[in-house]
Amino acid sequence: MDLDAFKATLADENPPEGVGRPLQALWWDAQGDWEGAHRLAQAEPNRDGAWVHAYLHRKEGDLGNAQYWYSRAARTMSSESLDREWEEIAAALLSGRG
């Protein structure tokens, strides 16, 4: 699945089957369910989960917490728009480059 196909699933009632928790978290975030997205990201104990977790705290405005999670993901805090960062993360995860 590529980014365009993933974004097309945002019209569905549930995230696409077969994607991991970090992508499910991004899907729920795009649906406006920050809490559900946060629970999924927090449950993923790897760098992909930490990256999504960081993005979610940046979106929330908790930049100190976001910085902690970017560090856990071995990434620097994005200076892109939130929409652009969402797309970057989703594309990387979908391609296995997370």
Rank of each mutant, 00 (worst) to 15 (best):
G32C: 12
A50G: 03
G96R: 11
E85R: 06
E44S: 05
M77C: 00
G18L: 12
Q24E: 15
P15G: 12
Q31Y: 12
A91I: 00
P15H: 14
E87I: 00
G18F: 10
D29M: 14
D4E: 15
P22H: 14
A37V: 06
R97S: 11
E44W: 00
N46L: 05
E17N: 13
G32V: 10
R47N: 11
Y68P: 00
V19E: 11
D2S: 14
E60F: 04
Y70R: 02
P15D: 08
L10M: 15
Y70G: 01
E60T: 01
Y70P: 04
R75C: 03
R72K: 14
H38W: 08
A30R: 14
E88W: 04
Y55I: 01
A92G: 13
D4Q: 15
P45M: 07
L3G: 09
D62K: 01
A25M: 14
D29N: 15
K59M: 04
S71C: 06
D48E: 14
T76D: 13
G61S: 04
A90N: 04
D48Q: 11
R72N: 11
A5V: 09
P45T: 07
E85Q: 12
R58K: 05
Q42W: 07
G20H: 10
L93P: 02
A54T: 00
S78C: 03
A91Y: 00
R97F: 08
L56P: 01
L26P: 04
L3R: 02
D12M: 08
A41D: 08
I89G: 07
P22M: 13
N46F: 09
S78I: 00
A74F: 07
R47C: 10
Q31R: 15
A74R: 09
Q42L: 09
H38D: 05
G20Y: 04
Y55W: 04
A54Q: 00
N46K: 09
L23N: 06
N65P: 07
L82G: 09
S79W: 07
